[in-house]
Amino acid sequence: MHTIIPTQAPQLSGITGRRVLGAAGLGPATLGWRDGTLAQHAPASGLWLDAGDLLVLPGIVDIHGDAFERAVMPRPGVSFPYAGALLDVDRQLLANGITTEFHGVTLSWEGGLRGEAYALRMFEALAQLRPMLGAEHKVHLRFEAFHLAGVDTALAWIADGRIGLLAINDHLPMMARRMADEGKLRQYAERAECDVETFRRRLRAASANAQEVPEAMARLIAAARAAGLPVASHDDPDVATRQHYHRRGCRIAEFPLTIDAATLARQLGDDIVFGAPNVVRGISHTGAPNATEMVAAGLCTVLASDYCYPAPLQAALRLAQLGVLDLQGAWHLVSRNPARAAGLRDRGTLAAGLRADAILVDDRQPGAPRVCATIVNGELKHAAAMPLLVDLADAGTLAA
């Protein structure tokens, strides 16, 4: 065995460890890969990563994360170039075990950070930076239902293959109820990069579209489904809304606001997404159902980072620590299940034929897991300061 602290990422042939979460559960295992794909039989030679007693887990697949907005606009009205912001976000993702990220990019009548110009900057930055990024970055388009002027734009993005997942949002009624709250209204206006009165005019203009919204959303959803994209409805408030969107082809219930809506989603066989921060904090920041209770009741199939990239790792291990689920079941919520919900059949578990996306986690400190290494498509993309042991022996020696 040799201790190597590489100046550049070594080309690894596999991992060996005593606590590997494979298809059969947690236990000793040696995983080899070729060309980024986990192999049925370990390669006979090459560099190997010895995980020792660290947890070896499938990489996290995050299908809803908008924490990148804080990197782009760290303070209301203060924006930074997307290129530098996304490089920072990429480091955050890798350090928190997220190997596939769906950025929640909003196209809304609000404008500003959630308008078309910022979305285009995201697309341009991703195209420019892709060779430099460690995680796989995709776009989850959050389309605000009352933004009829943006429908053709969204349709063009879908046709161009820029979108990986579509969600239908409708935050207008909630915002309208808050128009008397000057503090909240000022926050909305700053994010939209306009003055308060301009924001009021935008909201009133969007509200006038109410009669045309259902037909426009049916058109958008149909286009997404025809393109093979998964579609979600966001913040379903009741059973009728979930039923409506299910019939339209939205098979993901994203952050349902009531237990009844989540229960119907389960009965319909839809995926149900709750926020991992909800599990970590023990409560929703919006008054939505308690995510830990939803997991325990079988009413949650996916946990997403939402606004906090460290949360999926922390939430899954917390659920296992509390005994709500075993580790394998808890990890499915942040890896296998979101991959399937997003239509990504090539990742989410450590099994032959799938992508070699894996993370090494030091879980000795309860409540504070540390990602020591992140491997994406068979390449070491992140390593913490601790020495990593790379075995130069052949696979037979490792397996012995």
Rank of each mutant, 00 (worst) to 15 (best):
F143R: 03
D50H: 06
L165W: 08
G36L: 04
P230D: 00
G343H: 11
R336I: 13
I158F: 06
G112K: 00
T99S: 08
A342C: 03
T263V: 11
W331I: 11
R242I: 13
E293P: 04
L12P: 06
I63P: 00
S207H: 10
Q187M: 14
V78M: 11
L185M: 14
P43E: 03
A227T: 04
V20G: 04
D195W: 13
H382W: 12
E182Y: 12
P230S: 07
E182D: 15
V295S: 07
A291H: 02
A223K: 09
L26G: 13
L319G: 00
A189E: 12
A232K: 01
R247V: 12
R251L: 14
G115P: 13
R34T: 14
P289I: 03
V376A: 00
V105N: 08
H285G: 02
T374L: 06
A119T: 14
M386H: 15
A145N: 01
L49N: 00
N209P: 08
A368G: 05
Q11H: 14
P369S: 03
L26K: 08
R121P: 02
T301K: 02
A210C: 10
G228T: 07
T241N: 09
A208C: 13
E293F: 07
F274K: 10
V324A: 05
K184N: 14
I168G: 04
S207Y: 03
L360F: 01
M1C: 14
L155T: 06
